Amino acid sequence: MTETTASAQPQDLAGKGAVITGSSRGIGAATAALIAARGAGVVVNYRAKAPRANKVVKGIEEAGGKAVAVGADLTEDSGAQALVDAAVQNFGSLDLLILNASGGMEADRGEDYALKLNRDAQVNMVKAAIQAMPAGSQIVFVTSHQAHFINQTATMDAYEPVARSKRAGEDALREMVPVLDDKGVTLTIVSGDMIEGTITATLLDRAEPGAIEARRAAAGKLYTVEGFAAEIAALVNKPGLEQAHTELVGGAGDFLQN
């Protein structure tokens, strides 16, 4: 958790309400802290582990920020609406939605879970959110180079179903751009390479030993959780972003060559 106090940061998000899905740990938690430090009230979303989410909220509050933990499974119909309602009820509005939650490598969640979470749940979350978001709001979809470029560049066998489902989610959100334009809501895509210390990277390295080292060698360096979260946060409320802008964090040299 960042030790930077909210008062030391520009308060460009003061008075705004934010939802960050999958924010009880990792990239989502680090991003939540950065967004809260800029004045936003943040809904910290978790699926099952409330103590972990409460710890994130406590860290934000101790740094002078505002946050609330809300349990919601995005693959269930009621999950998205619960997060929207929490932002409006606790912070007065929903102005920022960061779609960070993803998965699909869980062995106990069913064969179609990746598509349900990485495509269907993302679309449902956006549909619920834009009913409450005022013009000028922003939606940020977090993905990976392995998913963003899956139609051009093969990825590890263990990750391919997840990558394809995340690309399907990205495509589905891009198809919603006319609706977002009508609402005055901007979509931003943030794509990064494998991130050191994440659950996905750990599972991939377990399934295919050496996977992390191979990506590190190909990319030159891999971002840490905190470093990637800072890149996501830097795109929030950034002036001049075009609709559906795609930010390739750290570049994507070997992907772009294919």
Rank of each mutant, 00 (worst) to 15 (best):
A121M: 11
G227F: 03
I130C: 09
V56E: 01
I189G: 03
T2D: 15
K166A: 00
G39P: 05
D120I: 05
G15L: 07
A6F: 13
V162W: 00
Q146K: 14
Q81R: 08
D12C: 12
S7K: 15
E242R: 15
Q81F: 11
A211C: 05
G253L: 11
I199H: 14
V19N: 12
R25E: 09
E106L: 04
F228W: 06
V88A: 03
A69T: 02
G197H: 07
K238W: 08
T31D: 01
D182Q: 14
G28W: 05
A53K: 08
V190Y: 02
A86Q: 07
Y46P: 00
D77E: 14
A218W: 02
R215G: 04
G184Q: 11
Q138A: 13
G64T: 04
A36F: 06
A154Q: 08
A114V: 03
A63P: 01
A207R: 10
A233P: 06
T153E: 11
K55S: 04
K66S: 02
F149S: 10
A218L: 08
L117T: 03
I20P: 02
T188D: 08
A163Y: 00
K166T: 01
A82M: 12
D254N: 15
K49D: 10
D181Q: 15
A128S: 15
T186I: 08
R119W: 01
G59P: 03
H145S: 10
Q122E: 12
F141Y: 15
N54R: 04
A132V: 02
E170K: 03
T31P: 00
G227W: 09
A219R: 13
V19H: 12
A154R: 14
A252C: 13
A147L: 07
A211I: 01
I27C: 09
H148T: 11
G210T: 07
S165T: 01
I130S: 07
G210V: 03
V84D: 02
L180W: 14
E160C: 01
K66Y: 07
I130T: 13
E231Q: 15
N45V: 04
